[in-house]
Write a protein that binds this DNA or RNA. Sequence first.
DNA 1: ATATCGAATGTAAACGTTTACATTTTACAA
DNA 2: TTGTAAAATGTAAACGTTTACATTCGATAT
Lengths: 343, 343
Amino acid sequence: MNIDIKEIARKAGVSIATVSRTLNGKGPVREETRRRIIQIAREYNYKPNPIARGLSRRQTDTIGVILPELMDEFFMDLIHSIDEEAYRANRFVMISSSHSQRNIVETLIEFMGSGRVDGVILMASELDSSVVELLKKSKRPIVLLNASKQINSMVSFNVNNYQGAMAIVEHLIGHGFRNIAIIKGPQGNCDADERFKGYTEALSAHGIALQEELIVAGNFTIQAGYYGLMRLMSQPQKPDAIFAANDMMALGAYEAARSSHIQIPRDVAITGFDDIFLSRLLTPRLTTVHVPIFELGSKAVRYLLRMISGDVNPGYPYREELTAGVILGGSCGCANPTTQLLL
Amino acid sequence: MNIDIKEIARKAGVSIATVSRTLNGKGPVREETRRRIIQIAREYNYKPNPIARGLSRRQTDTIGVILPELMDEFFMDLIHSIDEEAYRANRFVMISSSHSQRNIVETLIEFMGSGRVDGVILMASELDSSVVELLKKSKRPIVLLNASKQINSMVSFNVNNYQGAMAIVEHLIGHGFRNIAIIKGPQGNCDADERFKGYTEALSAHGIALQEELIVAGNFTIQAGYYGLMRLMSQPQKPDAIFAANDMMALGAYEAARSSHIQIPRDVAITGFDDIFLSRLLTPRLTTVHVPIFELGSKAVRYLLRMISGDVNPGYPYREELTAGVILGGSCGCANPTTQLLL
DNA sequence: ATATCGAATGTAAACGTTTACATTTTACAA
DNA sequence: TTGTAAAATGTAAACGTTTACATTCGATAT
């Protein structure tokens, strides 16, 4: 179909080995020959067939990305940053969502076993231990995103949910709130777990006792936030502030507050986590925690590439936590919140 | 690294050809042999190396997706639908954004020329004619998304921007509005052009003359919407309704209205286009046009796969427009808008 | 002139499949 | 039996690279 290395070699009057050496910049080639080959290759717009090359070198210059689901700006931003970084390094990105654990395994096997990709970035805040075992056996490097802290024998980049949650709860405490409720994330989700831990530790660090009635379950959806607030505000012991473990739930809480004429932050303060775009449109703007997704994606790609190149030992565990910063809106009671930044 | 076909053949006591035939289900193989091979292959968890297979068959079971940018839920939904459909068909998805026209070309060449992908889905509402020429010459099938109507020699799936815009403007007319303004999308963007056309034709179909002062430029950003409304409402001849060519601009218009104490829809009605998630959070909920992104992605993949398989002639032009429906919020003046659907 | 050595180039064997073609086996009819 | 055709299997040539190893070519030292 396209012109191949053999043709180029013929036209340049050399062997294909010399062409390959020239184009890959390995091995000695006389300057004059080199020039001629480059010239001809350019003239005929020759591009080595990456599949053949992949077969020979056992490399495809492609990285695989497996995400739990393909929705939310969160994942979009992640993909965005991964794509950007990969592009910069001349790599391609193969993407796949993994609706179930079963599927993660399948996709991983297909990705890894096969040589379709040189390495994988896998995000899964909820991982079966069986899957983890599989991961460890993988021949190709894997970088985990937001992995549970229990997984300590692998490479991972993580948002410091614990620190972020702690920071925002401390901010609430600074406002003088003492009855701080939490609407938790889904059971078994490590992000949710860490955020909850940050909440409890912030309270205990300030000598505030945990109150069971102020801890309600949730699952990161708007609904959960809605019902969470309703439930909390229907109790005799009402909270004066609510920490929703993510912005979507905070959003639900806003809806609930509006529908029941509860004023934020006068009647109850609300904070979230994630800093999704939406949160800055709420009135008052939501006080939340910004997660450095872009950095997360970039770092993951860069590290993965170093593992692939052998620049770092792929078998060597590594864990990095990216700190998250509080974004002040009016929902926590702050008088002069961060400006809107919309325009 | 992994077990290969040669090993399987050895273990089964047959030649590699027989193994290949068995696993691909082509050519005659004795039932007993077949069983034995399958059994052994399963036992050793053998998976044919897709790269080698790709080299031999000139197929990679991968489709390329090139999008103008990797942001917005719009693109996320698109990727989501493409991934889903591809997964269903056992195909892989290689993704790439194209920040510039220059980049589209590069990426396309790398994708196509090389055999990295079997076909491409390309979304680019603004395409240089030079790029179009390149596309036509492509050896591999291409499906365009939201392509300009001037591109008639290719395959494309499109949102019917014209019909959608017409419908929503007619809805405004139905409310009795006669001074209907538009905040347009970016110059040269075919979606924007079609939406504008829908606007003008809806007006003329009802005998309403175009008023130059009611047509302001925009670029699909919040800012443009903000300044657009400000400008329109500062004129002596104020509009009674504004059709923002997308929801982001409508959002900007909301902000502007709020900051200058203009009430929606009392002082001015507002409508958008796209039906992004955000639009249902505005008060009043934004009246807008829902675009069937999911269907767009699915159809594109399905058609592309048929082109790849030769089921349809890849050289044969085909164009499909998916109609878009109006979603009623309160921003157009409707008393009983669509329910919130948040919970 | 000849040996020696490094640089430049070529040859051919991988890489792991698919598949056209050749060969062997099987089943059945004559 | 033998012949014949179909079915089953095997052989080897692609696919387009990279790369270890072999060869050739100059230049320099003897």
